[in-house]
Amino acid sequence: MSRQARLLRREVLPFLFYLVALAVGTLLIDLLLHRLGIAWIGRWLGIPGTLLIVGSFGYSLRKRKRITTGSPTGWLRGHEVLAWLGSLLVLVHAGIHFNAILGWLAVAAMSLNVISGLTGKFLLDRSRRRLDEARERLRAQGLSPDELADRTYWDSMTFDAVRQWRVIHIPITLAFGLLALAHIVAIFLFWGWA
Rank of each mutant, 00 (worst) to 15 (best):
residue 2 S to A: 12
residue 2 S to D: 12
residue 3 R to W: 04
residue 3 R to I: 03
residue 5 A to E: 07
residue 7 L to G: 11
residue 8 L to M: 11
residue 10 R to W: 00
residue 12 V to H: 00
residue 13 L to H: 01
residue 13 L to P: 06
residue 14 P to K: 12
residue 15 F to L: 15
residue 15 F to V: 14
residue 16 L to S: 14
residue 17 F to K: 08
residue 18 Y to G: 01
residue 19 L to S: 08
residue 22 L to M: 06
residue 24 V to R: 00
residue 24 V to M: 03
residue 28 L to T: 03
residue 29 I to E: 00
residue 30 D to M: 04
residue 31 L to A: 14
residue 31 L to D: 15
residue 32 L to G: 13
residue 32 L to H: 06
residue 33 L to A: 09
residue 34 H to N: 14
residue 34 H to C: 07
residue 35 R to G: 11
residue 36 L to P: 09
residue 36 L to R: 12
residue 37 G to M: 10
residue 37 G to E: 03
residue 37 G to D: 08
residue 39 A to Y: 10
residue 42 G to Y: 08
residue 42 G to L: 09
residue 42 G to E: 13
residue 43 R to H: 15
residue 45 L to F: 08
residue 48 P to C: 07
residue 52 L to P: 01
residue 52 L to H: 01
residue 54 V to D: 01
residue 56 S to Y: 07
residue 63 K to P: 08
residue 64 R to F: 03
residue 64 R to M: 06
residue 65 K to H: 14
residue 65 K to C: 09
residue 69 T to P: 02
residue 71 S to T: 15
residue 72 P to Y: 06
residue 72 P to H: 09
residue 74 G to K: 00
residue 78 G to L: 05
residue 79 H to I: 11
residue 79 H to D: 02
residue 81 V to I: 15
residue 85 L to C: 05
residue 86 G to F: 03
residue 86 G to Y: 01
residue 86 G to S: 02
residue 87 S to I: 01
residue 88 L to T: 01
residue 89 L to F: 07
residue 90 V to S: 08
residue 92 V to H: 05
residue 94 A to Q: 11
residue 94 A to I: 08
residue 95 G to K: 10
residue 96 I to G: 14
residue 102 L to E: 14
residue 103 G to N: 07
residue 105 L to I: 13
residue 105 L to T: 10
residue 106 A to F: 06
residue 106 A to L: 04
residue 106 A to D: 09
residue 107 V to T: 15
residue 109 A to V: 06
residue 109 A to T: 11
residue 110 M to C: 04
residue 115 I to M: 03
residue 116 S to Q: 03
residue 119 T to N: 05
residue 120 G to H: 10
residue 122 F to M: 12
residue 122 F to K: 15
residue 122 F to R: 15
residue 125 D to L: 14
residue 126 R to I: 00
residue 128 R to H: 09
residue 128 R to G: 11
residue 133 E to R: 07
residue 133 E to F: 09
residue 134 A to N: 08
residue 134 A to K: 06
residue 134 A to P: 07
residue 135 R to E: 08
residue 136 E to G: 14
residue 137 R to F: 07
residue 138 L to V: 04
residue 139 R to T: 00
residue 142 G to H: 10
residue 143 L to I: 03
residue 143 L to A: 11
residue 144 S to Q: 05
residue 144 S to D: 07
residue 145 P to R: 13
residue 146 D to Y: 03
residue 147 E to F: 00
residue 147 E to Y: 02
residue 147 E to I: 01
residue 148 L to G: 11
residue 148 L to C: 09
residue 149 A to T: 10
residue 150 D to V: 02
residue 151 R to E: 15
residue 151 R to S: 14
residue 152 T to G: 15
residue 153 Y to G: 09
residue 154 W to N: 14
residue 155 D to W: 04
residue 156 S to K: 13
residue 158 T to R: 14
residue 159 F to K: 05
residue 159 F to A: 12
residue 160 D to W: 10
residue 161 A to R: 08
residue 162 V to T: 12
residue 163 R to A: 11
residue 165 W to I: 11
residue 165 W to E: 03
residue 167 V to C: 10
residue 170 I to Q: 05
residue 170 I to A: 09
residue 170 I to G: 05
residue 170 I to L: 13
residue 171 P to I: 12
residue 180 A to E: 12
residue 180 A to Q: 12
residue 182 A to M: 06
residue 182 A to F: 07
residue 185 V to S: 04
residue 188 F to M: 13
residue 188 F to G: 15
residue 188 F to E: 07
residue 189 L to I: 08
residue 190 F to L: 11
residue 192 G to W: 06
residue 192 G to H: 09
residue 193 W to K: 06
residue 193 W to M: 12
residue 194 A to I: 07
